[in-house]
């Protein structure tokens, strides 16, 4: 597993004068790649839960969830998620979040869900578990979301109160 917390960030540098780490192309096409981003190798293409689908494999269907870890500034780790979080993809999110929450606990953790276009109860469950874990470990967990696809499920289930929800990464409160 890559060390997703190691990279320091030069918040001040802009433009090409300092480009020690160009964004990497990632193996999975729909993971968001940003500068200083490490891509978590996702566990295979099979859903983590035992599938009852014993028919043909799902290769003909695009089911993908992009998950990437970055550290845009010191002391902050961001998990960027793109795609639809449903029963099929929620286990991937769970794995990524588990990694993230096992990281150095002086890091604040943000979950960037701006690219999430659907959030099912299975995904909500993963988020809620993570919020509980964060609370238990006395860590700050911030959710970045603006789309109805994320905000509405959080609101309608009353889970929004478990998170600090902000509209943008820049709105994450300081330490």
């Amino acid at each position: 597993m890559v060390d997703s917390h190691g990279s320091r960030h030069d918040t001040y540098r802009s433009g090409p004068e300092g480009s020690p780490s160009r964004p990497r192309r990632c193996a999975r096409p729909s993971s968001v790649v940003r500068p200083h981003t490490e891509v978590i190798p996702l566990p295979g293409s099979a859903p983590a839960e035992p599938s009852r689908d014993d028919g043909a494999p799902d290769q003909d269907l695009l089911v993908d969830l992009g998950v990437a870890v970055s550290s845009p500034r010191a002391g902050l780790t961001v998990l960027t998620v793109r795609g639809e979080v449903d029963a099929l993809t929620a286990p991937r999110l769970a794995t990524a979040l588990d990694e993230l929450m096992s990281g150095p606990d002086d890091h604040r953790v943000a979950l960037d869900l701006q690219g999430v276009t659907f959030l099912a109860s299975s995904g909500l469950g993963v988020l809620i578990d993570t919020a509980r874990r964060a609370a238990r470990d006395d860590r700050t967990l911030v959710v970045v979301a603006t789309a109805r696809a994320v905000l509405r499920p959080l609101e309608v289930t009353g889970s929004a109160q478990l998170f600090t929800v902000v509209p943008d990464l820049t709105a994450i409160p300081g330490p």
Partner: peptide, 17 residues
């Protein structure tokens, strides 16, 4: 790539913070 563009913009915005 958009990742680069966005990253660049991100860096710029982080400064505001």
């Amino acid at each position: 790539t958009v990742g680069e563009l966005v990253g660049d913009a991100d860096a710029e915005l982080d400064r505001v913070d």
